[in-house]
Amino acid sequence: MKFGFDIDDTLIDLRAHAFSLYNTKLGKNVALEAFQALQRVEIHEPFGLTDAEGSAMWSSSLEEIYFTDCPSFEGALETLQALAQQGHDIYYITSRPKQHCKQTSEWMKAQGFPITEGHFFCGMQDTEKVAIIKELALDVYVDDKPAVLETLQDVKTKVILKNQSYNQHVELPRLNHWHDFLELVNN
């Protein structure tokens, strides 16, 4: 089978990692419950930052957010390693900025994610992901962003939504824990 995966907030817990970094950088102690209650992707509001300030904070912190010790979601790494060992094709499709593509691929490999030459797509807008997913004719694609998954209604690809606080309004097969991934694929 051909499996496709978004990276941030699908395989790795990037926003929670960034939230922790924001607490440190801003000298605050905003509780994780504030993060878990967020209804949007952006994480700056609990810190009292405006959208412009939040955007500037995110942009100035990208290297630290992307390439430090951001953890993968429990079971994600093991699931992808098992899929690779079983001979499945694994594709990564991330909208991280182009200037971070090579370093992202290297970082993912260093974490143990199985990456095959030509199976790593990076540097596109979320809306452009759809064309890649269609072109690859993936059997399964997992992402956290409703805007990506909702545009895949007319394809054979089974779409699975990685559960996040900001996507609760979406009615798609929902991945709460990576240990449940194969069960979702087979249903």
Results as ranks from 00 to 15, higher is better:
K2V: 06
F3P: 01
F5M: 13
D8A: 08
T10C: 14
D13Q: 13
R15L: 11
F19M: 03
L21F: 10
L21I: 12
G27W: 02
A31I: 04
E33K: 13
F35A: 00
A37K: 07
R40L: 06
V41A: 14
I43C: 06
G54N: 03
E63H: 09
D69E: 13
F73T: 02
E74A: 11
L77M: 08
L77C: 03
E78G: 01
T79E: 07
L80N: 01
A82K: 05
A84D: 09
A84R: 03
D89P: 00
D89E: 08
R96Q: 08
K102S: 14
Q103T: 12
Q111A: 10
I115A: 07
G118E: 08
H119R: 04
G123H: 12
M124D: 07
M124C: 12
Q125H: 03
Q125R: 09
V130I: 15
I132K: 04
I133L: 13
K134Y: 13
E135Y: 05
E135R: 11
L136D: 05
L136G: 05
Y141I: 07
D144N: 12
K145P: 00
A147F: 11
V148F: 05
T151S: 11
L152F: 01
Q153K: 11
Q153V: 13
D154I: 08
D154V: 05
V155E: 15
V155Y: 10
K158D: 15
V159D: 11
N163E: 08
S165F: 10
N167M: 05
N167K: 12
Q168L: 09
Q168T: 06
H169F: 09
V170M: 03
P173D: 14
L175Q: 04
L175A: 05
N176Q: 13
W178N: 07
E183T: 14
V185T: 11
N186M: 15
N186P: 09
